[in-house]
Simulated scan of single mutants.
Amino acid sequence: MDDAALFAQQLLAGAHHDVLTLADARRAGASKHDITSLVARGHLVRLVDGTMTSRARWESCTTPEQQHALRATALTLVLSEQVALSHTSAAAVHGLPLLRRPGARVHVCRLGPGRGRSRQGYSLHRAYPGTERWLQPESDPLVVTPAVAALGVAALQGFVAGVVTLDAALHAEVATPEECHALLAAMERRPGIRLMSRVVAAANGGSESPLESQARLVVEALGFRVTLQVVLRTEHGEFVARVDMLIEELGVVIEVDGRIKYQNPDGTASVDTFLSEKRRESGIRDLGYGLVRLDHPDLSRPERIRARILAAARGADPSRRRRRV
Rank of each mutant, 00 (worst) to 15 (best):
L166H: 04
G95M: 03
I284D: 01
S276Q: 15
V219Q: 03
M245G: 03
E188H: 14
A147D: 08
K261G: 03
L135S: 07
H171D: 09
H68P: 13
A74T: 06
L99G: 15
R279W: 14
L211N: 02
R194W: 11
A149I: 02
Q82N: 05
G14P: 10
D34G: 13
V240K: 09
A84Y: 05
K261L: 00
D286E: 10
V199E: 00
V19N: 02
Q263Y: 08
V200T: 05
T176R: 12
C180Q: 04
G206C: 04
V256N: 05
H171E: 03
G103T: 08
V19C: 04
S300R: 14
G267I: 01
C61G: 11
H125R: 01
T88G: 13
T176H: 05
L184F: 06
E255Y: 06
I193V: 13
R280G: 05
A186C: 09
P137A: 00
G116K: 09
A127D: 01
A69H: 04
P102T: 12
E65W: 08
D257G: 06
R27A: 11
G121R: 11
Q9I: 13
V160E: 14
G112M: 06
A13M: 06
T227Q: 10
E208Y: 09
T88Y: 05
A203T: 12
A172S: 15
N204D: 14
G114H: 02
R126G: 07
T73N: 01
L124M: 10
H33A: 08
S60L: 10
Q229T: 07
V243T: 10
H296M: 10
P129Y: 04
L294V: 14
I193C: 13
R323G: 15
T88C: 11
E179C: 09
V218N: 04
S89N: 09
E132Y: 14
R320D: 10
T88A: 13
S213L: 01
L195C: 07
R46D: 05
G315K: 07
Q9W: 15
A172P: 11
L166V: 09
G206N: 08
S89V: 06
S300G: 12
V256Y: 00
L195N: 05
A28E: 04
A74F: 02
A30N: 03
V231D: 08
E138N: 13
V256L: 01
L166D: 02
Q9S: 15
V230D: 00
A25P: 11
A23W: 12
S89I: 07
H236P: 09
H125T: 03
L111V: 12
Q10F: 12
A186S: 15
R314A: 05
E277H: 05
L96F: 14
R280F: 02
R71M: 09
A202V: 08
P113H: 14
R279Y: 08
H107Q: 11
G288I: 01
G158Q: 04
T145H: 02
G258C: 11
V83H: 01
V106P: 11
A8R: 05
L98H: 09
T36Y: 12
L20C: 04
L170T: 07
R324L: 03
L310K: 07
D2E: 13
E59M: 12
T62W: 05
V83L: 03
A56C: 10
V106G: 01
R57E: 13
V292Y: 02
S282A: 10
L250P: 15
R189Q: 15
Q120F: 13
G152N: 03
A92T: 11
S300C: 13
V253H: 06
V48T: 13
A15W: 06
